[in-house]
Amino acid sequence: MQLNDLAERYVAVWNEPDPEARRKAVADLWTEDALMRLAPPQEMRTHATKLGVTPFLEARGHDELELRVVRSYEEFVAPGQNVFAVRQGARRLGDVVIFEWAMAAKVTAEQLGAGLEVVIVGRDGRIKEDLQFIDP
């Protein structure tokens, strides 16, 4: 598996405008039963703390993962102002791969968001588990 290729394909799916190409990219990147977990926004964490619970968000399987990608695309990329890119090359330890990404304004290249991706890959090179840490 080419690590930087995995990171580039991962980030590319979030920028993909074509629904069919995006659906195929989701199937190529994640296993059928893959799980993505991400920390919720601060407001949700604060409310959950008041309730005495620890919140997290998750998407499981191709349908939910595709919906997660579509919603992100619609909010951040489709309006034409932003783009996602790999920020730092991928590193691997066993079946764990990590890489950083950023969202930047297309015109000014100003970084508007970033995160760390920690993925566990299967023997076929597809992602089985995806932990997404979005920088506050």
Rank of each mutant, 00 (worst) to 15 (best):
Q2T: 13
Q2Y: 05
L3S: 06
L3Q: 06
D5Y: 05
D5K: 12
L6S: 01
L6A: 00
E8T: 15
Y10T: 07
V11H: 06
V13T: 11
V13Y: 04
V13K: 01
V13L: 10
W14V: 03
W14Q: 03
W14R: 00
N15R: 06
E16F: 07
E16R: 09
P17W: 07
P17A: 11
D18F: 08
D18L: 11
D18M: 12
P19Q: 05
A21H: 10
K24I: 07
V26A: 08
A27L: 06
D28G: 15
E32A: 15
E32S: 15
L35D: 05
L35V: 12
M36W: 03
R37L: 12
L38H: 10
A39V: 11
A39K: 06
P40T: 13
P41F: 06
P41D: 10
P41N: 09
R45L: 13
H47S: 14
A48Y: 04
A48V: 04
T49R: 12
T49A: 13
T49Y: 08
G52W: 07
G52F: 09
G52H: 09
P55F: 06
P55W: 05
F56A: 09
L57R: 03
E58I: 00
A59C: 07
G61H: 07
H62A: 06
H62G: 04
D63C: 09
D63Q: 15
L65N: 01
L65D: 01
E66T: 08
E66A: 11
E66P: 01
E66R: 08
R68E: 09
R68D: 09
R68F: 11
V70G: 03
R71E: 14
R71A: 11
S72L: 00
S72F: 00
E74L: 12
E75H: 10
A78L: 12
A78W: 05
Q81G: 15
V83A: 04
V83N: 01
F84L: 07
A85I: 06
R87W: 04
Q88H: 12
R92H: 04
R92I: 06
R92P: 04
R92Y: 07
L93C: 13
L93Q: 15
D95S: 15
D95Y: 09
D95L: 11
I98S: 06
I98D: 00
F99W: 13
F99E: 02
E100I: 04
W101M: 07
W101S: 05
W101H: 05
M103F: 05
A104N: 03
A104E: 14
T108S: 15
A109H: 13
E110R: 15
E110F: 09
E110M: 14
Q111E: 14
G113R: 03
A114W: 11
G115R: 09
L116M: 13
L116A: 08
E117K: 00
E117D: 14
V118S: 02
V118I: 09
I120A: 05
V121I: 14
G122R: 02
R123W: 02
D124P: 02
D124T: 08
K128T: 07
K128L: 06
K128I: 02
E129S: 03
D130C: 00
L131T: 02
L131S: 03
I134D: 10
D135H: 12
D135V: 11
D135Q: 12
